[in-house]
């Protein structure tokens, strides 16, 4: 943080458009091979529009926005809490935005949200960053 963070400041945030095969790569990276994420036909057979993104992948993007805010230092991310809402899909831009809700000498609290189009896919997300 170039200047001390102040309540109400927007954080830089990030945007990512996961490609069609991202859920396959995330499945390999994480070990979560639930077919709703990697198999279009299976996903449709259980009533989904298609293969959906892993919730923990989207939480990972939120964690990256929070870590970026902490000058890229993973040691400074103290906590992250999210609620999963709605489904995320590949080949559609995800935007993570946030703002500072409180800041003192030791810690900065952030409110974050991840959206895809007009859908919130992660909301009520709070992060604590060590100063």
């Amino acid at each position: 943080m170039a200047a001390p963070a102040a309540e109400g400041d927007a954080i830089p945030g990030l945007t990512v458009t996961p490609d069609r095969y991202l859920p396959v790569r995330y499945a390999g990276a994480s070990g979560d091979f639930n077919p709703i994420h990697v198999d279009q036909e299976f996903a449709k057979s259980v009533g989904l529009p298609g293969a959906i993104l892993h919730g923990l992948y989207m939480m990972g993007l939120v964690s990256r926005a929070a870590t970026d805010f902490a000058d890229g230092d993973p040691r400074r991310l103290e906590s992250l809490s999210v609620q999963f809402r709605g489904m995320g899909f590949p080949e559609e831009e995800i935007s993570v935005t946030g703002r500072v809700t409180s800041a003192d000498g030791d810690r900065v609290e952030l409110d974050l949200v991840a959206t895809q189009g007009d859908r919130e896919v992660i909301r009520n997300s709070t992060a604590t960053v060590r100063a």
Binding site: L56, S81, V82, F84
Partner: peptide
């Protein structure tokens, strides 16, 4: 999966 939190 409704919610998740971590404290590192």
């Amino acid at each position: 999966h409704g919610a998740q939190s971590f404290d590192w």
